[in-house]
Nucleic acid binder design. Structure first.
Lengths: 219, 219
DNA sequence: TATTATTTTTAGATTTGTCTAAATTAATTT
DNA sequence: AAATTAATTTAGACAAATCTAAAAATAATA
């Protein structure tokens, strides 16, 4: 079945809200999509006839199985485009959302297949969110602490627990960001500092404290 | 000023038709855009109030100066995306038009700036059509015959005069396509055949006849 | 030039997505 | 449990883009 851009935005909106609350209510979705409750009700009727949602008047709604799959495939497009914008075009990760909102509605599935391949089928987007696979399955990403990563092994940065500006400044200095590939060269027993290699940069040394705030996953 | 996707498509349609005939007529544009004459008339009124076209009822229409610039900037987006699809994602050049039709309506100008830079500001798209610059100026491309290209100089393939399947088969064998970079190593006086290097492939030899059907431009 | 044929425009309807205001249902309080 | 408040839906309107059918203007031809 085919969906309009507006329908796709509603599906995505429901997906994000139901993750938090199970059943979604009209006002919440209206707020999420910057629209009015009456518009939401109109669209709910349409999505119900298209058999994408479970919906009882006055009693909330949520995506059904096929609705969820559609949502995940839209999110897949969104996150692949974000990855492209950041790691190929050089955008900052905080500037790409609005552009990806537009790109995600380009319909060609062949395009997304080739884009995914071109990017090396990444598992995580520049914000640290997992990228659903071609079947709409979210990858299970075992995040481990960088400090626990064995010497000589390589992993990808997926999140950072401390989001303070001081921490972000450090990370920027070391050239570490979500998606960076990190290899541990050695750990110094004296103070727990680690010598690591970030992507294709020269090796550097980070403190135990910094390492413990960085989470990575094996590819 | 902002334009809807539909308005952009009309502007582009007028641009392409006026190149051939000067003034465009309603039926021709309706055919070009797969729509009805009445719909065209409606849109013409709107484009006239937006001061994009010159239009006298019953007497044809064409883009004015600002209309032309808008058209060229849309065409710029279209051709940059086509270039991306072919040379980065690996699409065949004959499969990319429909996808670029969608991508060209993504609105971010920063996106196009960065895409252009990422692609190396190409001057010509995979179909051999020139790519307007950031100001909507079409590059003037001096096409010269590959056979006349001096030894040791490099140029980019822009078009092929013989489009027969036999010719295309040859070009495919040599890995030559629109956009390929060709360096002339030497020319054999005996039969006029040329030793050339195509992009990053190993050198090969093509006949004078083949060379004379290939047109290139200096970057 | 008068008539016919073609092209273009107008008038009015349709679809999609949206809105406001009023009505209905559900939830909360007294 | 009745009254009040909040959430949701309905009714009806609107804008954008499209269409069909009819009217008007232009072009072609006898």
């Amino acid at each position: 079945m085919n969906f309009s851009i507006s329908e796709e935005n509603y599906i995505k909106g429901i997906y994000h809200l139901q993750a938090e609350t199970g059943l979604v209510n009209t006002n919440a979705l209206a707020k999420e999509l910057n629209t009015k409750a009456a518009s939401v009700t109109d669209m709910l009727k349409k999505l119900k006839t298209k058999k994408i949602i479970q919906y009882e008047k006055y009693h909330g709604f949520k995506l059904n199985e096929s609705g969820n799959k559609i949502a995940l495939l839209i999110i897949r497009k969104h996150r692949l485009w974000e990855y492209f914008l950041v790691f190929k075009l050089g955008f900052n990760w905080d500037k790409v959302h609005a552009i990806a909102e537009e790109l995600e509605h380009v319909s060609s599935t062949e395009l997304i297949k080739k884009l995914d391949n071109y990017l090396g089928t990444p598992k995580i987007d520049p914000h640290g969110d997992p990228i659903p696979d071609i079947n709409g399955k979210l990858p299970v990403i075992k995040q481990i602490n960088l400090y626990g990563l064995p010497v000589k092994s390589t992993a990808t940065v997926s999140s950072v627990s401390n989001q303070s500006s001081q921490m972000l400044e450090m990370l920027h200095h070391y050239g570490i960001g979500i998606g960076s590939k990190i290899t541990v060269n050695r750990v110094f027993d004296f103070d727990g500092s680690m010598e690591i290699k970030v992507s294709k940069q020269a090796s550097c040394i980070i403190s135990e404290q910094v390492a413990k705030n960085i989470f990575v996953y094996h590819d």
